[in-house]
Design a protein around this nucleic acid. Structure first.
Length: 559
RNA sequence: GUCCCAGUAGCUCAGCUGGAUAGAGCAACAGCCUUCUAAGCUGUGGGUCGCAGGUUCGAAUCCUGCCUGGGACGCCA
């Protein structure tokens, strides 16, 4: 049920098809202020055609509109403002939500097409930083949104488990490390060595050469080096799993960069066959018209990030036959992806059209990038732990009798951290602020979860009074809530189109605000409208739950 | 130097496929719990929408230039 479409239909008939229906739909807007109605059609662009002032056109159009769906049609200035028939529309929307439940807002525009999502991708032997959190939560949410729209998401954790950095790490370990210390505290110790290496390399650049040598040995399959590498990888993965478990995120594939080692030769061969490789300063590159050349092989014959990404893209297409392939990676890599996609296009793969980089801004500390090499980084695990503790404290204070406090504290604390990231448009840089992340009031996940818990509480208390058919909904006070509920499917489409979960985050905040206001002004259980009001509460619960779910956040029934 | 992203209230951000009076949250202040979960609700103050031009009936929104911040620009990923 789409009232915009119905409105457009009427307009098109009245203006005698001067404008296509599709275009009318895009022209229709929601008035800025609710006193001005629920839908509005601006007549300014018709002025030229009719050679009349927009005001007059608006009046003429509004006079001709008559449908039971609109309770009033008014011309205000150059606008045709429509007031929906609240009783009619409310009943329809609520019935729909209560019938469809969590499927409200679902579509099948994806038609089962596979979409691979490259997300999270932390680097082995480095702590899981706040930066990786962005990729993880944005990618996860996009996967959920895609799924809701009929796609089949495949989440790929493209672990950074290969590259010159491992040469460096191995040199550092052999020079300054010990097995015992690494066993005791893997990530921390490996990271310490990594940072130490860079510090030493500032005074002694030859270390960098030794790092490259060690990596060459690794690529050539030297047993000793390979053994170390495997060990580092395993320990790191164990640590990462702890975090993914806390976040409630899982992957369909953990193939990291190393997985493609034996698939590189083929890529180089394919490039050669297509006559795309050229030599430049001893390196092998693919020249591109509108951007810098893409490096495929270094002077010493070892491969690069781009080579691996080409191999990965081909492998993913052959394995999953994706219709789209998304890379949720920081915007500082925009050029890299531009080059990657161009290379694949030049190789003649038609599926290159489905490739997309989903960039996002950085987490800054004091306005600057948090550099892992210098050891200036904030550990996600610490932040999550702190958030959970704080949530637990809140529960003990506000709801001491609550059962399963631990589980709910986890849902609330983790939700707060995820939401803090997702509510902001992905391209914005985020200034790291523990204080903001641990805030549980205002525009936060706990606020939405709290609203959901309130709704659940009402439903528990009024259980016997819920009726699943709403014939007449005459509670005018609920209109702001209803009109938001009505927008949910559209919000999902927006989030899908722009690959932007923040649209959903903003929506659940708005809905919560509207509902809390309603809750504060109206008695729900103790009223002669209990049935219809509980139906509304039920619908709100469904939509909040589903909205949060699409963000990767759980909704406790009590808190 | 070239290219990308951002610049809206003290702070964090919406609004940006042009439209009607510029919106939230936080912080500050003042209220609301014998009454459905106060992680809530109500109210007050707070703005040259970075700057300058241009397009338009109409610009925070589109175009150009400039300023500021961040990032990228071949052997890192």
């Amino acid at each position: 049920m789409n009232f915009t479409e119905e409105f457009a239909e009427v307009i098109v008939t009245v203006i005698d098809k001067q404008i296509e229906k599709e275009q009318v739909i895009t022209m229709i807007e929601t008035p800025k202020y609710k006193e001005m109605g629920d839908l509005a059609f601006p007549c300014f662009s018709l002025a030229k055609h009719y050679r009349k002032p927009p005001k007059v056109i608006a009046q003429e159009i509004s006079k001709e509109i008559q449908t039971p769906l609109f309770e009033e049609v008014k011309a205000v200035g150059g606008y045709v403002n429509v007031y929906l028939n609240k009783t009619e529309v409310s009943s329809k929307i609520l019935t729909q939500i209560i019938t469809e439940k969590e499927y409200y807002g679902s579509t099948n525009i994806g038609q089962g097409g596979v979409v691979t999502i490259d997300l999270s991708s932390p680097n082995i032997a480095k702590p899981f930083s706040m930066g990786h959190l962005r990729s993880t939560v944005i990618g996860n949410s996009l996967g959920l949104v895609l799924e809701k729209c009929g796609y089949k998401p495949v989440r790929i954790n493209y672990l950074g488990d290969w590259g010159t950095q491992f040469g460096k790490l191995i040199v550092a370990y052999q020079k300054w490390g010990s097995e015992g210390q690494v066993r005791e505290n893997p990530i921390q110790e490996l990271f310490r060595l990594y940072v130490h290496f860079h510090k030493e390399a500032e005074n002694d650049p030859s270390l960098n050469d030794r790092g490259r040598e060690a990596f060459k040995k690794l690529e050539d399959g030297d047993e000793e080096t390979l053994k170390l590498w495997k060990w580092f990888r395993e320990e790191s993965l164990k640590e990462f799993m702890k975090i993914y478990n806390m976040l409630g995120i899982s992957f369909d594939s953990n193939h990291g960069e190393a997985f493609y080692n034996d698939k590189m030769d083929r890529v180089v061969q394919l490039l050669e066959e297509n006559n795309l490789l050229e030599e430049s300063d001893g390196a092998q590159v693919v020249n591109l018209e509108d951007s810098a050349p893409c490096l495929i092989k270094k002077r010493d014959g070892t491969t690069l990030y781009a080579t691996r990404d080409v191999a990965a893209a081909i492998y993913r297409q052959e394995t999953y036959h994706f219709v789209k392939s998304l890379y949720v990676v920081g915007h500082e890599q925009t050029l890299h992806f531009k080059q990657l996609f161009k290379v694949l296009e030049k190789m003649g793969y038609e599926w290159h059209a489905g490739l997309a980089h989903i960039p996002f801004g950085m987490i800054l500390k004091d306005g600057k990038k948090m550099s892992t090499r210098k050891g200036k980084t904030v550990l996600l695990e610490e932040v999550l732990k702190e958030a959970i503790e704080l949530a637990e404290k809140g529960i003990k204070e506000k709801n001491p009798d609550l059962a399963s406090k631990d589980e709910i504290a986890r849902q609330v604390g983790v939700g707060a951290v995820i939401f803090h990231d997702l509510k902001i448009f992905r391209m914005n840089n985020i200034e790291f602020s523990l204080e903001d992340m641990l805030r549980f009031e205002g525009e936060t996940a706990p606020y939405v979860q709290y609203t959901h818990a309130r709704a659940c509480s009402l439903l528990r208390r009024g259980n016997d009074k819920i009726h699943l058919s709403i014939d007449k909904f005459e509670d005018v006070e609920a209109w702001p809530v209803i009109s938001l509920l009505m927008n949910f499917p559209g919000v999902i489409q927006q989030a899908l189109k722009d690959y932007d979960p923040s649209k959903i985050a903003k929506f659940v905040i708005e809905l919560s605000r509207a509902f809390n206001k309603y809750y504060a002004t109206v008695k729900i259980l103790d009223s002669n409208k209990v049935q219809e009001r509980l139906a509304l509460v039920y619908a709100v619960k469904i939509v909040l739950n589903e909205g949060l779910r699409l963000l990767g956040i759980e909704s406790p029934e009590e808190m």
